[in-house]
């Protein structure tokens, strides 16, 4: 699978060599059971890759007293048990770990997510078209034409922040958020796209709907996506949407994916 050159960005355009984590990040206090390892202050695929690499490194290293880590766009929250270790001890250990120099990698696997755009499935499509000065078909083509990277999962169980949305679709969140967004809603806001995995309040623009399920607490891991995965949206019609919905309900739909470079 070939990936756009823009995918292979680097922090500040500088070449990186193996460096200690404490030379690349700062530690921020988060009470007596967690601290943040912060690699930057903006949404950037290269910074996000450092976060996920650190999470993977710590999952291998399993420092004594570490409970779990929570990756986000530009920092890693490290939860620990203060009865088994201390922030000072863990930060010394983590700070001395080295991250190998590498350009951000292309996604190892790319999920193909079927989406019925517009109408009742995407009630904000017309508004998005009007606000961006594009036709509805152009909005769909732009949204479905991009390759997205999973930056973070959070906010809701299984909600993935997918970026980057094409600049032409960049809109602020809705001024009045909806009280109830149905699960499966495909939404956009700012430079991100997302899929609501469960019913929830939400302020993003709803442009489509997918019948797929993204969170199942009975499975472990409970979510379809993993960090670093890629996502592509595939427009489908009403009939295909209904057929897929039925297959998902019967547990006989397997999500299509493209394998990326090893």
């Amino acid at each position: 699978m070939r990936v756009a050159a823009a995918e292979a960005g680097m922090v500040g355009g500088e070449a990186m060599t193996a460096k200690r984590i404490d030379a690349r990040a700062r530690f921020l206090p988060v009470g007596d059971t967690a601290f943040a390892v912060e690699f930057g202050d903006r949404i950037d695929p290269a910074i996000n890759a450092l976060v996920h690499r650190t999470a993977a490194l710590l999952a291998e290293t399993r420092p004594e007293g570490m409970v779990e880590t929570v990756p986000s766009f530009r920092s890693l929250l490290v939860h620990y048990d203060p009865l088994r270790t201390s922030a000072k001890a863990l930060q010394e250990l983590i700070g001395a770990l080295e991250l190998e120099d590498e350009a951000s990698r292309a996604p190892a696997r790319i999920w193909r997510i079927p989406v019925l755009y517009g109408g009742g499935a995407g009630p904000d499509l017309a508004e998005v078209a009007a606000a961006t000065g594009l036709g509805e078909a152009e909005v769909i083509a732009l949204h479905a034409g991009a390759l997205y990277r999973i930056y973070v999962q959070g906010f809701l169980p299984g909600f993935a922040y997918l970026g980057d949305l094409p600049e032409a679709l960049d809109l602020p969140r809705r001024t009045s958020p909806r009280v109830r967004v149905p699960p499966g809603s495909v939404a956009i806001a700012q430079r991100m796209s997302g899929i609501y995995p469960v019913e929830s309040p939400g302020g993003w623009h709803l442009i489509g709907h997918t019948p797929l399920r993204f969170f199942d607490p009975v499975q472990s891991p409970p979510t379809l996506f993993a960090p670093g995965d890629g996502v592509r949206f595939v427009p489908v019609g009403e009939d295909a949407h209904a057929t897929i919905a039925e297959a998902v309900a019967q547990g006989r739909y397997s999500v299509a994916r493209e394998e990326g470079p090893a």
């Binding site: 988060v30 766009f73 929250l77 939860h79």
Partner: peptide
């Protein structure tokens, strides 16, 4: 830019009035 939350975090939205986050907080 959204980052991780620990139980007990005191977040301050635009109103300037703090919210003390408890066990069911978002991640």
């Amino acid at each position: 830019v959204s980052d991780g939350i620990a139980t007990g975090a005191i977040q301050v939205p635009g109103s300037g009035l703090p919210i003390l986050l408890l066990v069911d907080h978002q991640t």
